[in-house]
C-alpha cells in the first residue's frame, strides 16, 4: 500500500532535507515499520518525538491503511 511520510523538525535530515515522501509499504504495516523501511529507526534516535496519522497523534505501533499520512516529529521543548 502507498502512504505519505512527513517529517518535522530535526528529522528532516533523514530525507535529506525533504519534508515528505510517498513510500510503498506492506499491507497492515505499523508506523514503526514504515519509518524503519524509510531509514528511520526511532529506537536509535535520541531526539525522536511522536507520530501522528492523518493529523492525530498515535502510538508508534499503530497499524496503517492505504493512503494514510504518517507524520513524525522530533522532540521540541519550550513553552
Amino acid at each position: 500500500m502507498k502512504i505519505k511520510i512527513l517529517l518535522r523538525g530535526a528529522l528532516t535530515k533523514y530525507f535529506n532535507g525533504e519534508k515528505e515522501r510517498i513510500v510503498e509499504v506492506p499491507d497492515g504495516c505499523t508506523a514503526e515499520e514504515a519509518l524503519k523501511l524509510s531509514g528511520i529507526d526511532w529506537t536509535k534516535i535520541d531526539n525522536f518525538g511522536f507520530v501522528a496519522v492523518n493529523g492525530m497523534r498515535v502510538m508508534i505501533t499503530e497499524k496503517l491503511k492505504d493512503g494514510d499520512e504518517l507524520k513524525a516529529y522530533s522532540k521540541i521543548s519550550g513553552g
Binding site: R57, K71, I76, G78
Partner: peptide, 12 residues
C-alpha cells in the same frame, strides 16, 4: 513558536 501550533494540533 509558530512551530508549536502543528505539534499541539496533532498532539491533541
Amino acid at each position: 513558536t509558530t512551530a508549536f501550533l502543528e505539534a499541539c494540533q496533532d498532539g491533541g
